[in-house]
């Protein structure tokens, strides 16, 4: 079995997002790019599984839809421990076009367990994994919080209302993973960083695809009020503010 981890290249989660004039496009000037945190956890779990099941898992491939500027993010995934990488040379437009491009590459992979983070931390559409499974006509399991290989079977635990559900799934399938799949994202070792540059990073051309979403307008959320320090000896002021300003008591 091969594991494919879909990687979204997203702005660092501490980035202050700005928009270009007209508020129809994000201004990415000066942005630091990272692996989408959910995808990073998925990759971490894939590596843990491969380390523990050398016989069952042959290879971990990371795949992204993006232009050349997404390559440092793929290199980091290789440094963390993926065996090879694929970049579909298309600027991602919406969840659907991303899923179409991924499906085109992955449709020939029959012995594949495909992992997709539940959402990306930039556009949060929660859609790519489900669309990808549909386009591949493969089973999909959502809200996966635990993944194991037991006696050659893929055993998955998912969060459901009021509890957890454990199921097995066939191959190929798409697992849409959330927090819990791994606890701490793996930090690349020096050796991993040095070998990343020699690992294969294949660039494939995309296919024609029309987005289904048209952005009309972006709006920044209202600015959070800043932290206010109250002198510990001034409890009355704290009570007054909680009552009068925050209106919580």
């Amino acid at each position: 079995m091969n594991i494919f981890v879909c990687i979204s290249n997203v702005p660092d989660t501490t980035t202050r997002i700005k928009y270009k004039p007209g508020n129809k496009e994000v201004d990415y000037t000066g942005v630091q790019w990272i692996i989408n945190p959910w995808d990073e956890l998925a990759l971490t779990r894939a590596i843990e599984l491969k380390e523990a099941n050398q016989a069952a898992i042959q290879k971990i491939t990371v795949i992204t839809v993006g232009k050349a500027d997404a390559e440092p993010t793929l290199r980091k995934a290789l440094a963390i421990g993926a065996d090879d990488a694929i970049r579909v040379d298309v600027a991602p437009e919406d969840a659907y076009t991303t899923a179409v491009q991924l499906a085109e590459v992955l449709k020939s992979e029959k012995d594949a367990l495909i992992l997709s983070g539940v959402e990306s931390s930039d556009f949060n559409s929660w859609s790519v994994g489900g669309m990808l499974a549909e386009l591949l006509d493969a089973p999909s399991v959502s809200a996966v919080s635990s993944l194991n290989i037991e006696a050659g079977n893929v055993v998955v635990t998912r969060e459901i209302e009021g509890g957890k559900q454990t199921i097995t799934t066939t191959i190929p399938s798409v697992l849409i993973v959330q927090k819990g799949i791994a606890i701490i994202p793996r930090i690349p070792s020096m050796r991993g960083i040095m070998t990343a540059r020699t690992k294969p990073l294949k660039v494939v051309q995309g296919i024609a695809s029309q987005p289904m979403v048209k952005v009309l307008d972006y709006q920044a959320p209202a600015q959070k009020s800043s932290c206010r320090m109250i002198d510990p000896e001034n409890i009355e002021e704290l009570i007054d503010l909680l009552h009068r300003e925050a209106r919580v008591i």
Binding site: P72, R75, P185, I187, P188, S189, M190, I193, M194, A196
Partner: peptide, 17 residues
């Protein structure tokens, strides 16, 4: 270089986490 930035990030991640 890309490697130098990755090392910086790895050290930062370890320290801050």
């Amino acid at each position: 270089t890309e490697e130098q930035l990755m090392i910086q990030q790895a050290a930062r991640d370890y320290a801050q986490r």
